[in-house]
Every structure is written in C-alpha cells, then in structure tokens.
Computed example of a mutant assay.
Amino acid sequence: MRKYGRPYHLPTSPGVMSDDKILRDLSVLTAATEVVFTEKMDGENTTIYQGGCHARSPDSGYHASRDWMKAFAAVISPSLAENERIVGEYLFARHSVAYDNLNSYFLGFAWIVDGTVKTWDSTVERFNILGIQPVSVLHRGSFSDAAVNAVLADLDLSKQEGFVVRTTSEFSETNMGTCMAKYVRADHVQSETHWMNAEITRNGLKKA
C-alpha cells in the first residue's frame, strides 16, 4: 500500500491552504507535447489495489460512508496485479460541493504501475476494462495561460471545485510535483464541521 501524492497548486490557484505547495516552475507542463485538464472533484482521494482499497492514507480508519467504496473495490481488486493501483475520487458523501448527477461514486484519474503514472489514454483504456468511470475531461492540448483561462471560463466555481492538469504522457510518481498541478476555487471549504464529523449526506447519481 502506498499513499498517493498531493499535486501542487498552480501559481494562480486561489484555494491555496497553509499546508499546500505551489508549483513555481511550469516548464514541464509548458514543454509537454500535450496536457489534459480534468475536473477536480470534491471527494475523498481513494486507492484501489490488489488487496482492497484505502483512503489517501493507507492507515485510514473506518467511516460508514466508505462501505460503498469497499464493496466496489472488492469487485475491482481481484483483477489488479500486485504492482498496480487505481486512484480516484470517492464521492459518496457530500463535502463542500453537492453533486446530483454523478456517473459513479468512484471516478478514476490515475493508473499506476510500478510507481509510474501511466499515459492518460492507456489509463482510460484500463478503466474501460475494469468498469471504472473516469473524471470528466475539460480540455486537451498544449499548456498555456490561454488554455487555463478557457477552462476556467467554462467552469462554474460556485458548483465546481476546480481542475487538475497533467501531461498526457506517463511519468514517475516522484515527478508528480512537476508533471501535474491543480487549480482550486477560493474558500473551497464552506462548512465549519468536517464532513467526517457531520451526518452523512449522499450525493446523487445520474438517473438511468
């Protein structure tokens, strides 16, 4: 079991907290042949591996909202190799953003094999094989201020948390700090009570 890293914030991200890091050098993103912008979802970072699943920290304890995730992972994990991990956002319990039209309570965004974050296209292919829904793609192309502004223009930051941008090529987990970054809305956390200490409010799934 391994903890998934925390992407750095873009310099323009207004949602930087005291314990967050900012990506000051954007050269890897700007030099990339292609990047993909995906919607940053407001859930619980969760990893599925051969033996089950865990929240961001492998030693995370029990919470009633995680029962759905454990059942979902029990179906997926037998198909994973020992060196393979699937990482995504678990969205069963409402945090600061309410969702009522989700494709699934688990939306994948990374496929990691032997410490390598695989290409975006191979990641989506692997998700298709496993029956995992990916996070929504907002834009693909080169990285630039114009691309960032275009993505932001299409977001409703009263209802969406922000975006994550990464190179579409593969990279080592040790290079997450340069090959990907995030933009989070200002004042993202809008509740005085942490979601884990509040009554569970279930997000909504897309109607069939």
Rank of each mutant, 00 (worst) to 15 (best):
R2M: 14
R2G: 13
R2C: 14
G5M: 05
R6K: 13
R6D: 14
P7T: 08
P7A: 11
P7C: 06
Y8T: 12
L10A: 10
P11Q: 03
P14F: 05
G15K: 04
M17H: 14
L23M: 15
R24V: 15
D25H: 10
D25R: 07
S27P: 06
V28C: 14
L29S: 02
T30P: 12
A32N: 06
T33M: 13
M41I: 13
M41K: 09
N45Y: 00
T47I: 05
I48H: 05
I48K: 09
I48V: 09
Q50E: 13
Q50M: 10
G51F: 05
G51L: 09
C53V: 05
C53N: 08
A55I: 09
R56I: 06
S57M: 15
S57T: 15
P58N: 14
S60Y: 10
G61P: 10
Y62P: 11
Y62K: 11
H63G: 09
S65A: 15
D67I: 15
W68F: 13
K70D: 09
A71W: 13
A71Y: 09
A73Y: 01
A73I: 01
A74Y: 06
L80H: 06
L80F: 09
A81H: 10
A81E: 08
E82I: 14
E82G: 09
E84C: 01
R85C: 12
G88F: 00
Y90W: 12
A93V: 10
R94I: 04
Y99T: 03
Y99V: 05
D100L: 01
N101G: 10
L102A: 03
S104M: 12
Y105L: 03
Y105H: 08
Y105M: 06
F106T: 03
F106E: 01
F106G: 02
F106Q: 00
L107P: 01
L107D: 03
A110V: 03
W111Q: 00
W111H: 06
W111P: 00
I112H: 03
D114H: 03
G115L: 02
G115N: 08
V117K: 09
V117G: 00
K118G: 01
W120I: 02
W120M: 07
S122W: 11
E125C: 06
F127Q: 01
F127N: 06
F127R: 02
I129M: 07
I129D: 11
I129E: 15
G131H: 12
I132S: 01
I132D: 01
Q133I: 07
P134Y: 00
S136V: 12
V137D: 12
F143R: 06
A147R: 06
V148L: 11
A150I: 02
L152R: 10
D154W: 10
D154Y: 07
L155K: 00
D156E: 08
S158H: 07
K159W: 10
K159N: 14
Q160A: 07
E161D: 12
G162N: 08
V164M: 13
V164Y: 05
R166D: 09
T167D: 05
T168Q: 04
S169G: 08
F171H: 14
F171Q: 07
E173I: 07
G177L: 10
G177F: 02
T178K: 12
T178D: 11
M180N: 06
Y183A: 00
V184F: 04
A186W: 07
H188T: 08
V189A: 11
S191D: 11
E192T: 12
E192S: 14
T193K: 11
W195F: 15
M196R: 13
I200G: 05
I200C: 11
T201Y: 07
A208H: 08
